[in-house]
Amino acid sequence: MTLLIQYTLLFASVLMLVALGGCFSEHSGVINIGLEGIMVFGALGGALALRYLPDGSAAVIVILASVLAAMAAGILYSMLLAVAAINFKADQTLVGTAMNLMGVAAATVLVKALNTAENPNNPSATIAYGSARKSFLIAEGMEFSWLTLLAVVLLVLAWFVLYKTKFGLRLQSCGEHPQAAASVGISVYKMRYAGVMISGALGGLGGLVYITAAVSEWKFENGVAGFGFLALAVMIFGAWKPFRIALAALLFGLFRSLSNVYTGFPFLEQLNLPGTVYNMMPYIISLIVLILFSKNSAAPKAEGIPYDQGSR
């Protein structure tokens, strides 16, 4: 049971962070299919920070450095989407797909290059951060991470920014009707950049939380196993609203962890469902939600449409 709660909280915080990222991007009017790639890059940034920090650094410094590195890497990578989608009016789905493919490939190439440069006999794409990871744990022996707490703080912050600040409301107006926003003097380009960059920061952080969740090393050729796409599902199920996203993340996190630990529950084992069924559930649920509620969808009206000053 504790194992289930641990896993659920872990997966939920990852999904929530990334989905909140997607939420900011979409509210500004840019569809971010590339979340998976952003997560990989954030994970890479964080893992590199963990690896190159001197041994025995204070826990606070380890956490701060890796979180900032992950966010910075995510922001940097999300600029690929921002430039293409906002300045060059490129097809956002196409760019996102390219980013997902590039994320895994580029991270693998980079880590392999670093590993072979250090030791020619080690052509693996694995980064180990065993000792540094302990800094994330709130108490020894308890698999509860400071990062989960950080995720909750960021959730409240995201809600506050989106609904209670001038910036958040302006951001949302750019996703609903950019021309109207522009007519009252809001710079749609700047707002969309901000939206995509925030999604980069949150997505990158989500990547770091994911890889440091339960293991002490990460094979980068595996990417992040579809968590970026699952986060998209969370965002849709959460109707693009922060607190609903948090609940959706908890639910989907629960399913994801059930697939790992369902054998520990007698009544679930009696159902005799393969673990893959639990893996499938989040996607099936999102699809059903889409079918039921798409006609009056809560999605930002102008998402995915490049902003063109000339059109009205």
Partner: peptide, 22 residues
């Protein structure tokens, strides 16, 4: 000494560039 994934990286860049074809 060169990771074979570089080919995947190149094709990903090519797709990314294709977004600018228009």
């Amino acid at each position: 000494i060169y990771p074979s994934e570089i080919a995947g990286f190149i094709s990903a860049i090519i797709i990314y560039m294709c977004a600018f074809v228009l």
